[in-house]
């Protein structure tokens, strides 16, 4: 226990829900999950590359968080604590599947009949997903944490166990690769 002004940055709703869950109110856990499903699901999806793996990682993270809730010493920071669990579960899920990312199958023409013309936006998303999938896992993770989750390098270091210098290098290489793969016309 430490007296700390940073704990004044409270998220009362999260803390309140965590307290209720600890007191045996399982139903209070539903709103907590709903609160973070979209944002954390987005991270899991981009890291793992498909919905099925992302849902599995998210479910595992929620389950583990519930069972370990006693160890969340700062309930007002439940989100950060949960995200740490999710990052680790995503790593475990990726390794267990024996691959780093499944690519969504591109939309294919069938003999010219009933050809679907994907929207430009959908194609851009697919291209981005393919590019992301070509990164090595550590680079993809670092890129997502930096640019999508918008963490500082300090926070990333604490989350991943890697040093800040290593993380900066991973992000740099990820950016270089994405630029090359996705054709950065701005760079010319």
């Amino acid at each position: 226990m430490t007296a700390s002004p940073s704990l004044l940055q409270v998220s009362p709703s999260d803390a309140e829900l965590v307290l209720r869950v600890r007191q045996g109110d399982l139903d209070a856990y539903g709103p907590l999950m709903t609160r973070y499903r979209l944002r954390f699901g987005r991270y899991a999806y981009h890291l793992l590359g498909n919905e099925s793996d992302a849902e599995e990682a998210l479910q595992d993270a929620f389950t583990l968080a519930y069972r370990s809730l006693d160890q969340c010493r700062h309930p007002e920071r439940f989100a950060a604590w949960l995200f740490r669990i999710l990052v680790n579960r995503c790593r475990t899920t990726g390794v267990r599947r024996g691959r780093e990312q499944a690519r969504r199958a591109p939309i294919e023409a069938a003999d010219g009949i009933g050809v679907h013309h994907p929207s430009e936006e959908a194609m851009r998303r697919e291209e981005l997903a393919r590019g992301l999938g070509r990164l090595v896992p550590e680079q993809r993770e670092a890129f997502l944490l930096k640019y999508v989750e918008e963490l500082s390098y300090e926070e990333m270091a604490a989350l991943t166990g890697a040093g800040e210098s290593a993380l900066k290098m991973r992000v740099k290489r990820a950016c270089e690769q994405l630029r090359e793969l996705l054709g950065d016309t701005d760079a010319s």
């Binding site: 399982l26 139903d27 856990y29 539903g30 999950m33 709903t34 499903r37 979209l38 699901g41 987005r42 899991a44 999806y45 981009h46 919905e51 992302a54 849902e55 998210l58 479910q59 929620f62 389950t63 519930y66 981005l128 992301l132 997502l144 640019y147 999508v148």
Partner: peptide, 19 residues
């Protein structure tokens, strides 16, 4: 990448059932 990605809304139900 920051655009919303919609996973199944069943995630919460699956977890609560499991718990």
């Amino acid at each position: 990448l920051r655009e919303p990605v919609s996973l199944s809304p069943e995630v919460e139900r699956v977890v609560l059932d499991r718990l």
